[in-house]
Nucleic acid binder design. Structure first.
Lengths: 192, 192
DNA sequence: TCGGTAATTTACCTCTTGGTAAGTTACTGC
DNA sequence: GCAGTAACTTACCAAGAGGTAAATTACCGA
C-alpha cells in the first residue's frame, strides 16, 4: 500500500483512539492493531506518539476551522448562528465523532508538542466563537472581556456535551442532531 | 500520623491528581510524592490505583449530590434554579476545583470499578438535572425523552466548562463565579 | 521493661509501553 | 535479470508503571 494512503488510514484510527480514550490512555500498539499493521510502521511514518498525536491534531484542527468558517460565511438568515455552526460541525464530524475530543483533550501533557498544537488550533476555532459571545454580551451593555471568555467556554462546553451525547447514540445522523439542536436551542432561548 | 487523617490527606491529593490529569495519566508515585509519603502506604490504605480512584469518586459524589440537593431544597425564589445550583457547586468545589472532573472523567477505563462508581454517582447527580430539563421542555410542549436527555448533557457540559474556566482563573472566588454566572445566564436568556 | 501493633519505608518484582535496529519482501526502472 | 528503494516485520531494549514482601520505627498498654 502506498505511503500516503497508509498514513491517512493510520491517522483515521489514531484520531478515533486518541479521541475516545484520551492521550495517556491511547496505545500505539492498539492503533497499529486496528490498522492491521505493526508498531514500527507508525514510528517510521510519524516518529513518536507525540508526533502521531500532533499529526491528528493538525489534521482535525483545520477541518473544523474551515467547516465553521464556511458555515458562518454562508449563514442562512432564518437560522441562528449557533445552530448554523452546530450543523456544520455535525456534518464535518459524521464518521469521526471522536475527533472533536482530540482537539479538546484535557489530558494532553501540558507543554508537550501535541498540547501546543491543540491549543493553537483551539484558539483559532475559539476566536470565531469569541466574536459571537462578545457581540451577544455587548448588545446587552456588557463589555467585560472575562465574561465573554467564560461564555465562549460555555459554548465549546455545549458543543462537547452534544458530541458526547451523539457518540452515545450512534444511530442518529448529523441531520437528526441538527434538527434536535434546533429544538433545544429554541427551548433554551424561550425558557431558561 | 493517625490513619484516618492520613487517608483524608491522600484523598485530597489524589482527587487533585486524578481530576487534573485524568485516570490514565495520574501516577500513584506522584500522588505519594505530593503527600510526602511513599507508594506502598497508598497501597496498604487503598489497595490499588482503582481502589484509590474509587475512594476519590465515592468521596466527591455524595459531596456534590448533597450540595445540589440542599441548594435545590432551599432555593431563593428570586434566583433561577440553574444559578442556584451553580452557586452551590462553586461553594462545594472551592479548594478542590478539579474534583468535578474526577466524576466526569472521560478517560476512566470502561467497565472498571472507578468507572462504575463514577457512573453511579453521576446518575444520581444527573437525575436532579434531568428533572429540570424535562420540566423546561415540557412547559413548551416538548415531551421527547431524548431531547430532555441531550439538554441534561448540555447542562453538565456547561458546568464542566465553567469549572474548567474557573481553574484557569485561580484568583477568582466562588462568589466571583456566582456573580459572573448570574450575568451570563441572564445574557443567554435574553439574547441567544 | 517488654510485647504487640500501627505507621511507614526500603528494596524489589513484573508487566506494559514507548521506542529502535536489523532484516525481509516486493515492486520498479534500467 | 538486477540494483535500488519503498513498505513492512521480527525481535528486542529501556524506562516507567502498578504492585508487594519484608524490615523498621515509634508508640502504648500490661
Amino acid at each position: 500500500m502506498p505511503r500516503v494512503h497508509r498514513e491517512q488510514q493510520i491517522l483515521g484510527a489514531a484520531v478515533e483512539e486518541f479521541g475516545r480514550h484520551g492521550y495517556a490512555a491511547a496505545s500505539m500498539a492498539e492503533i497499529a492493531r486496528r490498522v492491521g499493521v505493526t508498531k514500527p510502521l507508525l514510528y517510521t511514518y510519524f516518529g513518536s506518539k507525540d508526533g502521531l498525536c500532533t499529526a491528528c491534531v493538525d489534521r482535525i484542527g483545520p477541518q473544523l476551522l474551515e467547516a465553521i468558517e464556511r458555515a458562518m460565511a454562508s449563514k442562512p438568515p432564518e437560522s441562528g448562528l449557533p445552530h448554523t455552526v452546530l450543523t456544520a460541525l455535525f456534518q464535518a464530524l459524521e464518521g469521526q465523532r471522536h475527533a472533536w475530543f482530540v482537539l479538546y483533550d484535557r489530558t494532553l501533557p501540558p507543554g508537550s508538542e501535541p498540547w501546543r498544537a491543540a491549543r493553537r488550533h483551539r484558539e483559532a476555532v475559539d476566536e470565531l466563537a469569541a466574536a459571537g459571545t462578545a457581540a451577544l454580551l455587548h448588545a446587552q451593555g456588557n463589555d467585560d472581556a472575562r465574561d465573554a471568555d467564560a461564555l465562549k467556554h460555555i459554548w465549546t462546553g455545549t458543543v462537547s456535551a452534544l458530541l458526547g451525547w451523539w457518540i452515545s447514540h450512534p444511530e442518529l445522523s448529523a441531520q437528526d442532531m441538527s434538527a434536535r439542536c434546533a429544538r433545544l436551542l429554541a427551548a433554551i432561548r424561550n425558557g431558561a
